[in-house]
Design a protein around this nucleic acid. Structure first.
Length: 212
DNA sequence: CTCTCGATGAACT
DNA sequence: GTTCATCGAGAGC
């Protein structure tokens, strides 16, 4: 039995990413900011499973951008995309096997007033961290936080993952990954808490548009 | 060097 | 349903 406010041990992440991903649902991510603390309950995640996964940023091997995916478990992989957004992954084991869990959505537990400063367009609480870039914006996470340890003992660390209230595996729903095209869309490696209002609606991958 | 397009979100029809 | 904001990784030359 976990104490909900205890940090998860690093061994939590030193497992295959497909085991870790559903086990992250219901966990608490803590973000310590200069103006206070935000905590989020994770409600939707996606697994990216090694260099053989065609949907993964590691599919074409190691680059400066994705280096954190090859690093130690229990650290972040934060990437920049579409010229304006950041998204947050948590890296899983074993070290050297490029894997990560994209944090797609969460429910703000505390610090909503701080999140509103950064997410002024959210029309309700459920929208504050619904979608991976929204979640990163809500927590004010960007590239400087790439490679951050989330298993450290310091309660004041920039990011920490606490045990929270895990969701029984049988209660977790699973389906195709959002926004992943081609063969990468085949694997049902998106996991979410059914019925949670903070879970983003499924959007099929947009094929490339015709150009003039 | 140039070119394409992406693990997206917001605004709009 | 559509368009656009906006930039860097990766591929091709």
């Amino acid at each position: 039995m976990y104490l909900t406010d205890q940090p998860l041990p690093r061994t939590f992440f030193d497992r295959p990413v497909l085991e870790v991903a559903p086990d992250l649902l219901g966990r608490t991510l803590v973000r310590n900011l200069p103006d206070g603390r935000v905590t989020v309950r994770l409600t939707e995640v996606e697994a990216y499973n090694g260099e053989a996964d065609p949907g993964s940023h590691a599919y074409r091997g190691r680059t400066r951008r994705n280096a954190s995916m090859y690093g130690p478990p229990g650290h972040t992989y934060v990437y920049f995309t579409y010229g304006m957004w950041h998204c947050v992954n948590l890296v899983c084991g074993p070290e050297g096997f490029a894997s990560g869990v994209l944090l797609r959505a969460g429910e703000i537990l505390t610090g909503a007033e701080l999140v509103r400063l950064r997410r002024p367009t959210a029309r309700n609480d459920a929208e504050l961290a619904r979608g991976p870039a929204r979640l990163a914006t809500a927590l004010d996470v960007d590239r400087p936080l790439d490679g951050t340890d989330v298993c450290g003992p310091d309660p004041g660390a920039p990011l920490r993952l606490l045990a929270g209230t895990p969701v029984p595996r049988a209660s977790v729903e699973q389906g195709p990954r959002t926004g992943v095209g081609g063969e990468g869309a085949l694997q049902p490696w998106r996991f979410w808490i059914p019925g949670d209002p903070s879970v983003s609606p499924y959007r099929a991958h947009q094929g490339r548009r015709r150009r003039s």
